[in-house]
Design a protein around this nucleic acid. Sequence first.
RNA 1: GCGCCGGUAGCUCAAUUGGCAGAGCAUUUGACUCUUAAUCAACAGGUUCCGGGUUCAAGUCCCGGCCGGCGCACCA
Length: 488
Amino acid sequence: MAHPARFTYHSWTQPFGRPVSTPYTFAHSAYCAALAETYGHLAAGEESGVNVAVAGRVMLLRSQGRLAFATMRDSTGEIQLFALESMTRDFENFTKLHLGDWVGVHGEVVRTKRGELSVKVARFELLAEARRNFGDKWAGIADYDLRYRHREADLWANDVTRVSLARRSALVRALRERCWAAGFMEVETPILNAIPTGAAARPFVTYHQALGSEFYLRIAPELWLKRLVVGGFERVFELGRVFRNEGVSPRHNPEFTMLELYAAYWNYEDMMAFTEELVTGAVVDVLGTTRVTYQGREIDFTTPWARRPMAELASEAVGEAVSVHTSRERLAQLLTERDVEVHPSWGAGRCLAELFEATCESDLWNPTFVTQYPVEVSPLARRHPQDHELTERFESFLAGRELSNGFSELTDPQDQRERFEDQARLAAAGDDEAMRIDEDYIKALEWGLPPTAGLGVGVDRLAMVIADASNLREVIAFPTLKPIREDQ
RNA sequence: GCGCCGGUAGCUCAAUUGGCAGAGCAUUUGACUCUUAAUCAACAGGUUCCGGGUUCAAGUCCCGGCCGGCGCACCA
C-alpha cells in the first residue's frame, strides 16, 4: 500500500448539515452484553417497558422504507437498533447513518417479531461520524500493512484482532496479579541506560541534549532489579518494555514486553517451581484450561513441566554423549556437520549451547525447562556446585521457542568482574552483542546480594500462544513497521 | 542484510498466450412497515505502489526503487 487510503467524505449536507455538530457528552446507561443478559427472556414481539441509553458504532444498517434496523456495537457486544418513522425522532436521518458512525440512542428494550433483541429508537444523536469506512463489512480488512498501521480500524473490522489484543491484556493482568499475590513488589527501573546490560543484544542508541550524553535503551532491567534486592526489597518485579536493535520477524519485534522478577533466598529450583505456577496459572486465568490448541496442535501446560539438562538433550539429538567437557574440537565438528558456522571465539560451552539450539530447541513443544547452561553463555548466573563449568540456570521452551530464562544469581563480585571481562574480550573481538563491564553493578554486589533467583518471561511470546497467533504482530497493538517514505 | 511471493476502485478480490481495466460490498440517488452480509433499481468511482525500458499495444514482460508477507541470517 504505497498510497495512504483516500478520504471518502460522505455528504451529510442534506440530513445533518455541515459541519456536523456533535455533542460533548452522552448520558450512557447500558452496555450491549448486559442488555442481552438482562433481557434474554423477552419473547418475540415483547416489549420490556424499560428505556435505556446505549452508544456505539453502527456496524450494519438495513433501511426499509418507513422502518430501519441497524446493528450497533460497543465494547461489550452488539445490539440491534430498531427505528420506526412513526416512533423515532429524526427518522429520516437515522436511515442515512453510515457504517462506522458513532451513535447514542435512547429507547425501549424490545424483542422484534422476528426475535432480535433491540433498542427501539425513540431518539438518537450522532456522536461522531466515520469519514472513512472500515473495510468490507463481510471480509473486513485483509491488508497487513493497513491492519498494523491503523489498528484502530482493524479492531472494528476483524474480530480476531479484538480477541487477540483482549487476551493479551488479560494475560498481563493475570501475570501482574499473580506476582502481587506471591508478595512481589512492582518497581520501575530506567529505560535510558548509560551502559546496555543484563542481556546479550545490540542496543538502540539515543542522545540526551542537556546532559550531552549518549544513552542506550535498555535491553533488560536485570541489573537494576538486583540492585533493589541488594537494597533490601526482597521480592521485586518489573513488567515493561525492552528494546533490542535486531532483526524483525514473525517472532521478533524491536520492542517487546518482558516480565522480570527476583526473589531473595530462592535458588533456580525454587524459581522453576514459581515459573510453572505463574505461567500455567496465568494461562488458566485467561483461557480456563491447561490444554491449549496452538496452530492446530495441543499444548499441555499441566505442571510439573519436564526438566532436562541441556547436555542430555543435546546428547540424545546427536547420538553420542556430549557435555561441556567434551572437547571443543568434537563439538565444533558436530556443529559443522549441521551447517552451523563455528566462530573462533567460541569455547566448548558456547558450542554445546549452539548444538542444543540447532538440534533440540524447535522440537520442545510442551513447556519444558532446559537446565544446566554452560558458564560461558551465562555471565550473570551462579556456578553449579557440582560442576563449575555449568550454572544453576534454566530456560523454558514452549511451541519450539524460548519463553523464559532464569537462574540462581551470581552474587560473588570478583567472579562477576571476571565474567564481565570475558564478555569485554568478546566485544573487543567484534561481538557487538557481548556485555560490557558495569562497575556500578559490581559495586552493588560488593554491598552484598543475598542468595537470589531471577526470572525473565517473554510476555509477547506467551500472548501469541494464548491468542493462537502465528505472528507476534497479532498480539502487539502497534508493531514496529518501517515508516513510509514521504518522497515515494 | 539475502531469497521467494505480493501490492488493481474506499474495502475484498477478478482480468486467458501482452489486446477496450471488471465484480461484490461501501458511497450517492430512488423503491420498500420486521430486517439479519436485508432486497431491488440506477448513477458515480482507476496515476493497476513509484520511476524507467521493451513493444503497434504493458495490470501482465525487463531494470531500479518503495512497502508488506513468508523463509534464511540475526535474536545466547
